[in-house]
């Protein structure tokens, strides 16, 4: 984004002005009471007025849930209204951590939770590592002297905009028994496979699809980082006759490191929350092989038969702690390098 361009030419106003006429009228009417308010409260009062709606909504729908989540996790029963729930202290946490053998998640009372934790852990490690490698490769290639670079950049970015449901369905369609992948393998003489009903392959598919869907975003940030590296450094290295591999290890990578760190942490934060596209793709199955933490929380909290919102709240707080650590890490890195936003 660029600051307001002083030199931008005037677009044709006629159509816009017709469109804006009712807006103008409304804004003008609103202005009357607001002038009175301004007279009464002064300019700083107006600041509060401007901030209030956002903070109000934000308070009710983000801060308040965040706060009562702790209380929630210390109550039992299936009721949703906090007043109807009984206080049970840390029982929900005890339940999550109650195992007869701490080395075997299946011996825990909430084995589903630990399965989800284990799945999420593996997913995070695999997905983030592979995705960052692919994104870095893509960014390096897009940073070369390419014709139509913005076209190629768009190609890799395309899946990022797709909804998780669409992503899940596209790949479900391709990976099904009579799908495109099996056809392609069949043509190559390889036995078709039931990708989504095999425990291992379903997990691999979840990782792969999630990389497919998000890689472009990270490639884009890394590309921006690469393009911010001053060109004269490369020219200087060329004058010195530096080998290409050495240029990569000694110039590109160190200068990209801050961006790379930010990207890794962002990807970690996102991967811990993995849910939507995998849920649509596999429904968490077969069995529980692709059930991740968010799905566990969702099902524990809302699945009608064995609903336990308190347990779900406790699990979500544990997940929140992991995210807090990652966020602090990200803010710490961000402060050291340059101000960076988060992502929604």
């Amino acid at each position: 984004m660029t600051p307001p361009a002083a030199g931008s030419p005037a677009p044709s106003r006629s159509f816009a002005s017709i469109l804006l006429a009712p807006v103008k009228l409304v804004m003008g009417i609103i202005d009357v009471p607001l002038r009175a308010l301004q007279k009464a409260t002064g300019i700083s009062g107006m600041a509060i007025f401007f901030l209030a709606p956002n903070m109000l909504i934000f308070g009710i729908f983000v801060l308040l849930p965040l706060a009562i989540n702790f209380v929630y996790s210390m109550t039992g029963g299936t009721a949703f209204f906090l007043a109807d729930r009984t206080f049970i202290g840390l029982d929900q946490y005890d339940r999550l951590f109650e195992c007869s053998n701490y080395l075997d998640p299946m011996s825990c009372q909430e084995d589903a939770f630990w399965t989800a934790v284990g799945n999420t852990g593996w997913f995070v490690v695999l997905q983030v590592t592979l995705m960052i490698l692919v994104a870095l490769g893509t960014a390096l290639i897009l940073n070369r002297k390419l014709r139509a670079r913005s076209f190629w950049r768009a190609v890799f970015f395309f899946p990022v905009l797709l909804s998780p449901v669409v992503v899940g369905l596209i790949w479900k369609w391709i990976l099904q028994r009579q799908g495109l992948l099996n056809f392609a393998l069949f043509e190559m003489g390889i036995e078709p496979h039931n990708w989504l009903t095999d425990r291992t392959w379903a997990f691999v598919a979840a990782v792969g699809v999630s990389i497919w869907a998000h890689m472009g975003f990270y490639a884009l940030i890394l590309l921006a980082g690469l393009q911010a590296i001053p060109k004269d450094l490369y020219e200087a290295a060329e004058m010195d006759g530096t080998k290409a591999s050495r240029v990569f290890w000694r110039i590109t990578l160190p200068l990209l490191a801050p961006n790379l760190l930010v990207v890794v942490v962002l990807a970690l934060i996102k991967a811990v929350q993995v849910f939507d596209e995998v849920y649509v793709l596999t429904g968490g199955g077969p069995g529980t092989s692709t059930m991740f933490l968010t799905q566990y929380i969702y099902e524990t909290g809302f699945a009608s038969q064995l609903r336990n919102p308190g347990l779900a709240a406790a699990a979500s707080i544990l997940m929140g702690l992991v995210l807090v650590v990652l966020t602090l890490l990200q803010l710490g890195i961000g402060r050291k390098t340059e101000p960076k936003g988060g992502k929604k």
Partner: peptide, 20 residues
């Protein structure tokens, strides 16, 4: 507050948010 909650994901607050 705004900076600190940039990263609050739905998964962490979905149960109490639902009750609200």
């Amino acid at each position: 507050i705004i900076l600190a909650t940039l990263m609050v994901p739905l998964s962490v607050i979905m149960v109490p948010l639902y009750s609200i």
